[in-house]
């Protein structure tokens, strides 16, 4: 216990705990919409375009998070506007995914010296999130939270039945593009915690578990946030104590929890079924 309290006095651990908390809030607020609207591929594409912005920002010598934010938001808006004009939107997203990564690689190559920070952005390292980035993450989380609260009814409406929402004269396109931008901001918030490559897992695994536990969308959001916190913090301490990569530890903790919940639920269902027969 004393050891634990001692650990909590380190600033980098405090930052990591806060980063995990902030990442969990956005993953719980946005993840359920991504799963419901089947936007996992779009979200994967958006997170990978971030690498282009990171590379350019690194080459320019500014905070890579700023470059990633600009790239992700532009890509989100681009996907939102082009989706209606072309029926091949997944082709466009796939191209954006690869081009974003390619731009990032080229600009890292152009930057003199080794770029160790960029590995953090690719695979995440919750133990190295600086206090300045916690501040940026807090602002993003505040913005995402307020947006979801304000537009909740409209977002639920388009996620359940977009056509019906159109008949009720809701601004469906505005809400869809808004959701894409919020997904972009959620990705930026989580990049340092689990990395570009694993971001999509943190957006979906807590939701997949929560959907096993509730049929109420609001409760799924709350459960996803709580699960996200547990997954991030347990991954953080595993990473600290046994020196595993933190991003991967977090995702593996989530995956193990998902498997456990599925097995327990199936077992309960099987036992109920057999007792019903007998």
């Amino acid at each position: 216990m004393a050891d634990m309290l001692n650990i909590l006095s380190y600033e980098f651990i405090q930052n990591a705990i806060l980063a995990g908390l902030l990442a969990s809030i956005v993953c719980g607020l946005i993840g359920p919409f991504i799963v419901a609207r089947q936007m996992v591929f779009i979200s994967g594409g958006l997170s990978h375009t971030a690498f282009g912005g990171l590379g350019i920002a690194y080459w320019m010598g500014v905070n890579p998070l700023y470059g990633a934010t600009a790239f992700v938001l532009l890509s989100a808006a681009g996907i939102g506007f082009l989706e209606k004009k072309t029926e091949k939107s997944d082709l466009f997203i796939g191209i954006l995914w690869a081009v974003g990564m390619a731009i990032g690689i080229v600009f890292i190559h152009l930057t003199p010296g080794y770029a160790p920070d960029l590995m953090t952005f690719l695979f995440g390292n919750i133990l190295t999130v600086p206090r300045s980035d916690i501040f940026i993450m807090s602002i993003l989380v505040l913005f995402v939270t307020l947006s979801v609260l304000i537009f909740y009814k409209g977002l639920v409406s388009i996620s359940f039945d977009e056509e019906y929402a159109k008949t009720r004269k809701l601004p469906v396109r505005f809400l869809h593009i808004g959701l894409l931008l919020l997904i972009g901001l959620a990705i930026i918030t989580m990049i340092q915690v689990v990395g570009i490559i694993l971001v999509i897992a943190l957006l979906t695994i807590p939701v997949a578990i929560a959907e096993e536990l509730s049929i109420n969308f609001k409760r799924i959001m709350i459960i996803s946030i709580l699960l996200g916190i547990w997954i991030c913090w347990s991954g953080l301490f595993i990473s600290y104590y046994i020196e595993f990569p933190s991003g991967a530890s977090i995702i593996l903790m989530g995956s193990i929890l998902l498997c456990l919940v599925k097995i327990i639920k199936k077992s309960i269902g099987f036992l109920q079924h057999t007792s019903h027969i007998s």
Partner: peptide
């Protein structure tokens, strides 16, 4: 709408 037009997997009561 036709029952196939909306998201039947959406978690909603």
């Amino acid at each position: 709408p036709q029952s196939s037009n909306f998201n039947k997997n959406f978690p909603i009561t």
